[in-house]
Amino acid sequence: MEQLILASGACDPANDIICKPDNVIELFKFEDNLFAIGPWGITRTVFLILLAMVIVLTLLFFGLRKRRMVPSKFGVTIESLMQFVRDDIAVGIIGPEGTKYYPWLLSLFMFILVGNLFEVTPLINFPITSRMAIAGGLSLLTWVIFVFVGFKKNGFRYVGALVWPTTVPIALRPLVGLIEFVSTFLLRPLTLAVRLFANMVAGHLMLTLLLVSGWVFMSSVGEIGARALIGVPWFAFGLGIFVFEIIVAILQAYIFTLLSAVYVESSIHIEH
């Protein structure tokens, strides 16, 4: 019971109508080491990150291991996932040269997808992408790549076209240029990271609060009597959100990958 109240803090079912933790950080921080490899302590989050990596590698390996003419159902799923990323995201957004960025986009998609789906995986129930380290790290990588590509393809015209856009009236150019500069170099990586992070944090909070609070109320029926029934709608609502979060997990992985592709595309073709 004490462990269950991990999420709900010092919850008093007799007075509170929803159990909320004193500090949401407790839901996301796992400071204690599960085990240690040499000098590196492995916390639960780090363990889950490595687990996500292993799952992605396993999925790809078993999906593509046998080069069969007629693939199995699982093989078809992996293959169509890969072709979806290639045709719809890499080539669809960037164009023919998108195949160069395809491995990067595919690894992004798979890693984020598995990380997101951890949120609704039984026994794990914790999206690693709700840690700013993952969301921010990946978006930082995207930022590095699209800035690098911009300079490599267009040289200093890349920044020049951003801060001095020739398609707008000359009086507006400094203003538009400033907005463009800030939006490209600051807001893009920030929003990319925060979008994923915020969706996952919100989903995890909703799920934990609703399910745990529902469970706390229903299980303390002996102490508070008929008022424990309030736990039933909480729990049912939590289950509804659970299904919704599956969709959010897939959609957010898709959007992160899509936007990474769009940013790279806008660095290659600076005219528009």
Binding site: V46, I49, L50, V56, L60, P103, S107, R131, A133, L141
Partner: peptide, 21 residues
Amino acid sequence: PHPDELIAGLIAFIIIFFFVW
């Protein structure tokens, strides 16, 4: 970002990337 997680995440991503690539 938590530094441990950042490092672990980047390592994991790079391993995935090389495997995919």
